[in-house]
């Protein structure tokens, strides 16, 4: 159900972008105003999001420990699954952010009938799909820098060379575009296929996937099939960068669809689950060291609570304490 609504929404948006790119009035809109507005929403939205998170304090130190703590010096500890120092915690975060450490934990045990031992198989498809998608997207994004910088930065050229290493096709095929689309396809496929995941999926889950697929797909199409006027595109993007927007007429309408969908993505980003990207850096179960007993954590809103003091307790059980011959702080009660 959600899968269909999301698909229809994306189709409408894509068509709007495509048609908009053909009419001269809307072309200017899509080529200049929409991207500016989208970037504005993106920046303000993300800042607002992160500030909102950061404004809520972390009252307790609650890391999820996924390995041996630091206790006795002769016990080998898990430095990065149960970090003790800030440095180790940073490594844990890096493993999480760059390599998706937690998703990598999905081992599956297999009983082999003949053998005496259990076999552990790695069930890593979700991890692999997610990793391929995110890394591909990063490379694709960096590659796009060539549209925004004149001359193209050396690092981008290097990246392009690596990405197009196999020198297949003309223009050379960049693998990350293909892997990104394939990984997205896998992520969509598993969302539809695994009943539990499908059951919990919302409109936004499909919408984000379709949107990214449409962007990647249109990008690939532009590069390899439409082979649009790159010079014109660069004129447009550099114009946007320097706040002197120009909208060349030589650029294919499909490009405007691509641009429009990217704008939609940017504007949608801060209000959707896609904010998990900045969010992970703030996750208290991951970004805190497991040194709760060594370094006191301060709760900024720690407030006094109603307790049962020893004096009250002794008073309440005075007779019983005396009968049992247990020591008292005050030999006679207040009520004598």
């Amino acid at each position: 159900m959600h899968a269909w609504t999301a698909l229809i929404t994306i189709i409408i948006l894509a068509v709007a972008g495509y048609v908009g790119g053909q009419l001269s009035a809307t072309r200017v809109l899509i080529g200049t105003i929409v991207p500016y507005v989208a970037i504005g929403i993106f920046l303000v939205g993300i800042a607002w999001r992160v500030i909102a998170w950061a404004r809520s304090p972390v009252p307790f130190r609650i890391p999820t420990t996924c390995g041996q703590q630091k206790s006795l010096p002769w016990i080998k500890r898990a430095r990065f699954d149960s970090p003790f120092t800030p440095g180790e915690t940073i490594v844990r975060m890096l493993l999480e952010v760059l390599l998706f450490r937690s998703l990598f934990r999905n081992t599956r045990a297999e009983l082999r009938r003949e053998g005496p031992r259990l076999l552990y198989e790695e069930e890593k498809w979700l991890w692999l799909g997610a990793l391929v998608f995110h890394w591909s997207m990063l490379v694709v994004l960096l590659r796009h820098l060539r549209f925004f910088r004149e001359p193209t930065p050396a690092i981008v050229l290097l990246l392009q060379r690596i990405d197009g290493f196999f020198q297949i096709g003309a223009p050379v095929v960049y693998w990350t575009g293909v892997t990104m689309l394939a990984a997205l396809g896998y992520l969509l496929w598993r969302r539809l296929k695994i009943p539990q995941v499908r059951y919990v999926s919302l409109f936004t889950d499909y919408f984000a996937l379709y949107l990214l697929m449409a962007i990647a797909g249109s990008g690939i199409w532009l590069r390899y099939f439409t082979k649009t006027d790159i010079v014109g595109v660069k004129q447009l993007t550099l114009g946007l960068m320097t706040f002197t927007p120009v909208v060349p007429t030589t650029v294919a309408p499909l490009f405007f669809m691509h641009l429009f969908l990217v704008s939609v993505l940017l504007a949608y980003f801060p209000f959707s689950k896609l904010v998990h990207m900045p969010g992970i850096f703030l996750s208290p179960t991951r970004n805190l060291p497991n040194n709760s007993r060594a370094v006191r954590h301060i709760n900024p809103w720690n407030y006094p609570v109603k307790v049962h003091t020893y004096e009250e307790w002794e008073e309440e059980f005075r007779d019983k304490l005396i009968a049992a011959g247990l020591p008292l702080d005050k030999e006679s009660g207040n009520h004598v």
Binding site: R108, A109, E110, P195, Q196, R198
Partner: peptide
């Protein structure tokens, strides 16, 4: 939603 998982997940401990 659960039936397929019960049938297809082969890890005897999971």
């Amino acid at each position: 939603q659960t039936r397929r998982f019960l049938v297809e997940a082969t890890d005897p401990f999971r």
